[in-house]
Computed example of a mutant assay.
Amino acid sequence: MANEAKPAGAGRRGEGGFTLLEMLVALSIISIAALTLVRLDAYAVRTAGDLDESSMAGIVAQNRAVELWTDPTPPTIGASSHAARNGGRDWRIEQQVARTADADLLRVDLLVRPVSGRGQAALTIIRPAR
């Protein structure tokens, strides 16, 4: 009776679970995935901070533009830089004033950067020369 059917599970001793090697491979894959998620989370936090600084730099640039626009005395032609404190932070405002093709108008380019940080904003306005 060589063709007799064997009962289920007979001859497969020790094949019911995972081996230690299979468990180590699975844990290493899960660990790599978890580390990737942690790095992604840190990147998202850093990007949010940069976006916050860029937004605030834009507000500082707009404030400076309003000051320049409403000042009855036109700004001096050429490059200059100013320090400002806004939103509890220190900012560096680089200003470039140039003539335009119309003698009655000036072009003012502003670049605002935090004294310490990575965000920045640029803004250009046209204002009367007189």
Rank of each mutant, 00 (worst) to 15 (best):
M1C: 03
A2H: 07
N3H: 12
E4R: 13
A5C: 00
G9A: 05
G9W: 09
G9K: 06
G11F: 05
E15Q: 14
F18P: 03
L20R: 06
L21Q: 10
M23N: 05
A26Y: 02
I29V: 12
I32Q: 01
A33R: 04
L35D: 02
L35Y: 02
L35V: 07
L37W: 00
Y43K: 13
Y43R: 14
G49R: 14
G49S: 14
D50R: 14
D50N: 13
E53K: 06
E53L: 06
S55T: 13
M56N: 08
M56I: 08
A57K: 03
I59K: 08
Q62D: 15
Q62Y: 08
N63T: 07
A65S: 10
E67F: 11
E67A: 15
E67C: 04
W69T: 14
D71N: 14
P72L: 06
T73C: 06
P74L: 05
P75L: 00
T76E: 12
A79W: 03
S80H: 00
S81R: 14
H82A: 15
R85M: 11
G87S: 01
G87D: 04
G88C: 02
D90F: 01
R92Q: 14
R99N: 15
D102Y: 03
L105H: 02
L110A: 08
L110M: 04
L111V: 13
R113W: 04
V115H: 04
S116D: 15
G117R: 05
G119T: 11
G119F: 03
G119A: 11
Q120H: 15
A121M: 04
A121F: 05
L123W: 00
T124F: 01
I126Q: 09
R127M: 00
A129F: 03
A129R: 00
